[in-house]
C-alpha cells in the first residue's frame, strides 16, 4: 500500500502551492489513475513520488517504509516513465535498453534477460536495431515504457504515457499497462483523457489546482445522489432554470440538468410549464467522469 499523507509542494516564487495536503491511499497491485486537466498538479505529484522533487510537507510511505528510504536502498523499486521521450535518439532501441539497464546496476545475463522481456512486452522486436530517432511516435512511447520496466519496479509511475500517439498505439499501450499489475507492479497513471482512466484504472483520484477533489473506485465516483436529466424542449430553457439545475447544452434545445433528487423532477416540470416550455422528451441517466469533473470544478478536463 502506498500512502500519501498530507503532502504539499510549492515551487519557488509560485503564488499558490502546486500540491495542497494531498492524501491518498493506493492499494498494491492495480492501476491507479490521477485525472485532471493540464496544470492540475499531476506531474508535480509524480515528481515528488519519483524523488525528483522533495515535498515541503507530508509523508509518503510504501508498505509503511518512507519512500525516500526505499529509493536509496533499492533504486530499482520505483520507476518513472516521464511525458518526454527520455532516452537517447542516436542510440538504437537495444542500446537504449542496455544503457538504462546498466545504469540501474543490471549486468550480464540479468541485463540481457530483462532487456529481452521489455522488448517483448512493448513488442519492439522488429525495431531493436533501429535508432530511436527513426521510430514513429507510437514506437517511441513503447520504448519509453519498456525502459521503465527494467529492474522490475514495485511501483511504476506513468506520466501521460499516451500523449501524441495514434489511436492504434494508444490502444496497445493501454492494454499493456492494464496487464502490468498481474506481474506484481503497482501502476500510477496520470492522464487528462478520461476514457483512458475509465478503461484501465481500478481506483481514481480527480485532481485540480493541487488538491484531490474526489477519490475512490470508478463506480464510487460516478455514483451520485444527484441524478442527471436529459431533456428536449420546444422552446429554449429559461436562464433562471438553467442556472438552478446546472444545465449544459447537449443539442438543439436539448439540455442536461443535474437534479438534487428524483423527487424534484415534478417541481422542474411544473416550472417549465409555468414558463411556457413544452417538453418533447426526457430521460434520467448516470454521470460520466467529464460530468463529475465539471460538477467538482466548474470547468472541463480539456480546459
Amino acid at each position: 500500500m502506498l500512502k500519501i499523507d498530507s503532502v504539499s509542494y510549492r515551487y519557488r516564487d509560485a503564488a499558490t502551492p502546486a500540491l495542497q495536503n494531498v492524501t491518498l491511499e493506493i492499494p498494491a497491485g492495480g492501476v491507479y489513475g490521477l485525472l485532471g486537466p493540464n496544470g492540475a498538479g499531476k506531474t508535480t505529484l509524480i515528481s515528488v513520488l519519483s524523488g525528483l522533487l522533495t515535498a515541503t510537507d507530508g509523508l509518503i510511505t510504501l508498505d509503511g517504509i518512507p519512500l525516500a528510504e526505499i529509493r536509496s536502498k533499492n533504486p530499482r523499486a520505483i520507476a518513472l516513465v516521464p511525458q518526454d521521450y527520455a532516452f537517447y535518439p542516436m542510440l538504437t532501441v537495444a542500446e537504449n535498453l542496455r544503457f538504462f539497464g546498466g545504469v540501474l546496476g543490471l549486468s550480464g545475463a540479468e541485463l540481457s534477460s530483462q532487456s529481452e522481456s521489455a522488448i517483448a512486452f512493448a513488442r519492439l522486436e522488429q525495431v531493436v536495431g533501429k535508432r530511436a530517432e527513426q521510430l514513429s511516435g507510437g514506437l517511441r512511447r513503447r520504448l519509453n515504457l519498456a525502459i521503465g520496466l527494467l529492474g522490475k519496479p514495485q511501483l511504476l509511475l506513468l506520466d501521460e504515457p499516451t500523449v501524441g500517439v495514434d489511436p492504434q498505439s494508444r490502444h496497445f499501450l493501454l492494454d499493456s499497462i492494464a496487464a502490468l499489475p498481474a506481474a506484481g507492479t503497482t501502476v500510477i497513471y496520470t492522464s487528462h483523457y478520461m476514457e483512458e482512466i475509465e478503461a484501465i484504472c481500478q481506483k481514481i483520484a480527480i485532481v485540480d489546482q493541487g488538491q484531490v477533489l474526489a477519490e475512490g473506485t470508478l463506480s464510487d465516483i460516478l455514483h451520485s445522489p444527484e441524478p442527471l436529466l436529459d431533456i428536449g424542449l420546444e422552446q429554449p430553457l429559461p436562464e433562471a432554470i438553467a442556472q438552478r439545475y446546472s444545465a449544459t447544452i447537449i443539442g438543439e434545445q436539448k439540455y442536461r440538468l443535474i437534479l438534487p433528487s428524483t423527487v424534484t423532477l415534478q417541481n422542474l416540470l411544473d416550472e417549465l410549464a409555468s414558463a411556457g416550455c413544452s417538453v418533447r422528451n426526457l430521460s434520467l441517466g448516470q454521470h460520466d467522469l467529464e460530468q463529475v469533473f465539471m460538477r467538482l470544478t466548474n470547468r472541463s478536463l480539456r480546459d
Binding site: 519519483s50 524523488g51 525528483l52 529509493r71 536509496s72 533504486p75 520505483i78 520507476a79 518513472l80 516521464p82 511525458q83 518526454d84 521521450y85 527520455a86 532516452f87 537517447y88 535518439p89 542516436m90 538504462f100 545504469v103 540501474l104 525502459i147
Partner: peptide, 16 residues
C-alpha cells in the same frame, strides 16, 4: 539533448 528530452531527469529518478 539529455536535458531537453528529460533524460537527465530520468537518470536522476534512477538514482544517478
Amino acid at each position: 539533448i539529455e536535458r531537453q528530452q528529460g533524460t537527465l531527469q530520468r537518470l536522476r529518478a534512477m538514482g544517478v
